[in-house]
Design a protein around this nucleic acid. Structure first.
Lengths: 338, 338
DNA sequence: CCGGATTGTGGTACCGATAACACGGTGGCG
DNA sequence: CGCCACCGTGTTATCGGTACCACAATCCGG
């Protein structure tokens, strides 16, 4: 018989008190005489008793778990967020359940539904798109606190932690313009992702600010991952008058885009300059190549989790938080700046 | 009142049956008349009832959760493992709790202890070092199934999924030797990590196979991360007769080592050739630089999780599994091969 | 047409903890 | 010296499910 089958009653029996008293000892509540506490502790260690969080969770109606849901853990941006979240949660004595939706709306729906059933106390979510609204409303319906990170979803009343997508995008594109580029391509997800919308707005603002007419053929919709980036770039390269510079909506799309450039026998930045959102830390340390708007991923995770914990503990303010974190513009090689 | 407070009894009342029958409907067990099933399902959807996994877990003594514990989620190798694990687990209707130990033994101890309390059904662990044995024995003591990945711990009777560390290391070092190097440095973790031991064995085998005497000053102990790699490389560069090539125990140490080389005003591979274990996927796609023994991280995760699920479901064989996965040797630039 | 097997359902206890309340004993204060 | 607050502890019910057994109704073969 393993000690995990040892219950609070066994301890109570051995130490000659009621289960309730043992519970008090476990939870460090006052109102236990030193002598009793000693006896109970003795029994606990004698039996190797470890209280069940599961049972405690059911009884207290507080499972002590929260979930972090991202479109792709393998994206270093989300990995950093997850890592920070795990740390903050652990310090607050919470466990973190991971959900990787692979940018698939129906996976996201299922995951969220599952986690509602699991009675997690809260979720930190980087939603797939605006169409996530349906599942997110379920959370509200069930009274499960949640915080959105990286992407917002219109019409949802909840805390969000975002990057400055439009400002960042504008800055990136302005930089390309300052380098003399006029035909600037943009590889971006569909408009039902808030970051895509905002970055597109920044892109357009930069262009119009420089008096450059928007050429719709230069804006390509594609998944924000390597294969999407590659497909998008291929299409841009096939244009009669191809762009001299390209802005990709995120780091992984940039990877694919660069691969496509090379596959076409061209080079970045010589033939096509490139800028993007989000860094790839270890890649940049090995080879400082990507000119990027680097977002403070760790802060996203830390802050998001803290906001979530506040909500869970009912300490959150009435009004929702909307935090916008500025990015850091890092000029490296891919933009072709000297 | 949110639907998450709706219980099986509410459903029972509304549909005019006993909670037990509702439970049967939820669990798709036979022995429910079509008519009753219909009525119950009607009530369920009417109330928006979502059964509590928490309660079910307590009652069944099976929480439906497993844990994945790694030294560093931000290492792309472990990220890939985690991602695969999450997917396999989800398909089997399990939730994954993440533990990031940051290579800290005491964090690992706490995390494991916490997860025992949580009554997770099993754990997949990349242990910090041999000194993890103490916590791991706790798992055995509590009858919690676990599978070790990437690293083994001597004297522990459990399933393990490993890479071919000694063979891989030998191959890497032999390659350096074939390029004419005789003074080959090795930056490695302390010997209480099985991969460090095995890779050291491979290193030594390659040297002695080529008739090169082992020079202990060329073997430097350092953490298997960027700062360790950097420190290790610095020390090697300060030697009177410094190595012409270096083998680092893993990918992140390689990053640090390269940074140190550059900080010293030198270059890889011109001044120092470099090879390592494990790839950094996106870095290599952007810039195929690291000559590495690439391990099939995803397979580690998939296989490890499958083995774990087998153990949990009691389908595991009597004898323990010990799977050794071969790596793929990829020659790029850092070794200086033409 | 009867006895035993099968089917559909309910009752009760229990999983392992905790909340809420009750209660006897002690000490301080008027 | 009596009353009341407080202290330490126990009792009971409950969290939301499920296992196990019981049981009435129906079915079947001989």
């Amino acid at each position: 018989m393993s000690p995990s089958n040892t219950t609070i009653r066994d301890v109570a029996r051995l130490s000659g008190v009621s289960p309730m008293t043992v519970s008090r000892v476990i939870n460090d509540s006052e109102r236990v005489s030193p002598e009793t506490r000693r006896r109970v502790e003795q029994a606990i260690s004698e039996l190797g008793y470890v209280p069940s969080r599961l049972a405690r969770g059911l009884s207290r109606q507080r499972a002590g778990t929260l979930a972090v849901i991202v479109p792709d853990v393998a994206n270093p941006f989300f990995t950093a967020i997850l890592r920070a979240a795990e740390e903050v949660a652990r310090r607050a004595d919470y466990h973190v359940i991971l959900g990787d939706t692979r940018s698939d709306l129906s996976v996201e729906r299922d995951v969220i539904e599952e986690l509602i059933a699991h009675r997690v106390e809260g979720m930190m979510i980087a939603p797939v798109s605006d169409r996530s609204a349906a599942h997110l409303r379920r959370l509200a319906e069930f009274g499960v606190p949640f915080v959105l990170i990286d992407r917002t979803v219109p019409g949802l009343d909840c805390d969000v932690v975002l990057g400055d997508s439009s400002g960042g995008a504008r800055r990136l594109v302005e930089h390309l313009i300052s380098l003399g580029h006029r035909r600037i391509g943009f590889i971006v997800e569909s408009d039902d992702v808030s970051t895509a919308r905002d970055r597109r707005a920044g892109y357009e603002a930069a262009l119009s600010g420089a008096g450059i007419a928007l050429d719709p053929t230069l804006v390509v919709n594609a998944a924000a991952d390597p294969s999407g980036g590659s497909a998008g770039m291929s299409r841009l390269l096939e244009l009669d008058e191809r762009p001299t510079a390209v802005f990709t909506v995120n780091n992984l799309a940039a990877v694919g885009a660069i691969e496509a450039v090379r596959a076409a026998g061209l080079e970045v930045p010589d033939d096509v300059a490139l800028v993007c959102f989000d860094d790839i830390e270890y890649a940049s340390r090995l080879y400082p190549f990507l000119t990027a708007m680097e977002q403070p991923a760790q802060t996203f995770g830390t802050l998001g989790t803290q906001l979530l914990l506040e909500r869970i503990e009912g300490r959150g303010p009435e009004r929702r938080h909307e935090v916008v974190l500025p990015g850091e513009f890092i000029i490296r090689k891919s933009c072709g700046a000297k």
